[in-house]
Write a protein that binds this DNA or RNA. Structure first.
Lengths: 196, 196
DNA sequence: CCAATACTAGATTGATCGCTCTAGCGAGTA
DNA sequence: TACTCGCTAGAGCGATCAATCTAGTATTGG
């Protein structure tokens, strides 16, 4: 029974993980169900066994998983920073480095899907919205600890996330990391003046 | 000859215009060739007559056209502003209003395509990059006239465009205009401190 | 008026899409 | 051993994809 549950978890989880990666790199429409099960090394039949809602259900779960993983990642990057301002800089610089290392493939794991699908699938749109919301909430807490009011923290983090997402768009199109560095600089200045 | 050239221009142009609109709303992968010719009320055969490079060539041209149209639009929105700071605010507020009016369908005409396709089609990626570049160049000129150095203008406009694009992503996912308003406020502050 | 060219028209192709379906495997229970 | 049931396995469905192909109609220059 333990082994059975284990293998079940594995197959299911492999499907979600493979989806998360493919969705991040190619978006929703360009990713086929067949491609997902192949990448996950999962049997085709299992996909509709675990996800009777089909591609959409699997996609929504993959988005939420990506969201949770990246929330941890955000925390990890901010943690070693001595203050919020250098934290912001480090964060954008880290994103730039990672983007370049992956040949401009790994940007935001859900942005492409969010743009593609928000007007088509309410289920997927909601998943994306929840992930963004959780990121904003996590970031806000961090700023509040630095002495910023809750409302203002939320505004600043929302603006920061927007700058990050947009910089990813520009960076992927231009194959340059400058948008990330420049946007990071601008947002660092905003946070700076807020703390002063 | 005049009539012939006219009709030729019309059919070709209708294909480009219809593509531009569909690409903006649905992205590249979700937009079918059949859907384009139907929307353009153009004969299917004409599409491959005018665009032997197929969907990709038509897409690239549509992106460039959208870019040119929106560049005019940007200028028009900034024109009546008394100073750059209120110009920024007006711009983001206008984008928010328009997004809401179109039920969150009309955001950036090329962002979705840029994210979807930048890692797949070099031709399309380049078209998107050129459009972003032209927007940045146009915006920079405007800031330079307010007394900011060319390099700094470029940086500020790049950050502003990033904030705008990212705010669109968040706004479409959350079906809220607050990301646009908040990002606009943050960028207005940045420009403000630059001019002071 | 005729030949050449530009454009229209849509049937058709092969590939791929998401998904359903039936059949059977294998581990746990009685 | 028999039975159940979670899961595997993949053939195959109808639909749709981008693109090609052959005919055809206008329009043009000679």
């Amino acid at each position: 029974m333990a082994a059975s549950t284990q293998s079940k978890r594995n197959t299911r989880q492999r499907l979600v993980d493979a989806s998360a990666e493919l969705l991040a790199r190619q978006g929703y429409n360009a990713t086929g169900v067949k491609q997902i099960v192949t990448a996950a090394q999962a049997p085709f039949g299992s996909m509709y066994h675990f996800f009777p809602g089909g591609k959409e259900q699997l996609g929504a779960e993959a988005i939420r998983t990506s969201g949770a993983v990246y929330e941890q990642l955000i925390e990890a990057v901010f943690e070693p920073a001595p203050d919020p301002v250098t934290g912001v800089r480090l964060f954008f610089a880290g994103a730039a480095a990672h983007l370049e290392e992956t040949d401009y493939a790994d940007a935001c794991p859900i942005a492409t899907v969010a743009l593609e699908i928000s007007s088509v699938s309410e289920q997927m749109r909601q998943a994306c919205a929840e992930v963004f919301e959780s990121w904003i909430a996590a970031g806000s807490q961090r700023l509040e600890r630095a002495g910023v009011t809750p409302e203002r923290s939320r505004e600043l983090i929302t603006a920061m996330l927007a700058a990050l997402e947009g910089a990813f768009v520009l960076a992927r199109a231009s194959r340059t990391t400058t948008p990330l560095l420049v946007a990071g600089g601008a947002m660092a200045a905003v946070v700076q003046s807020e703390l002063a």
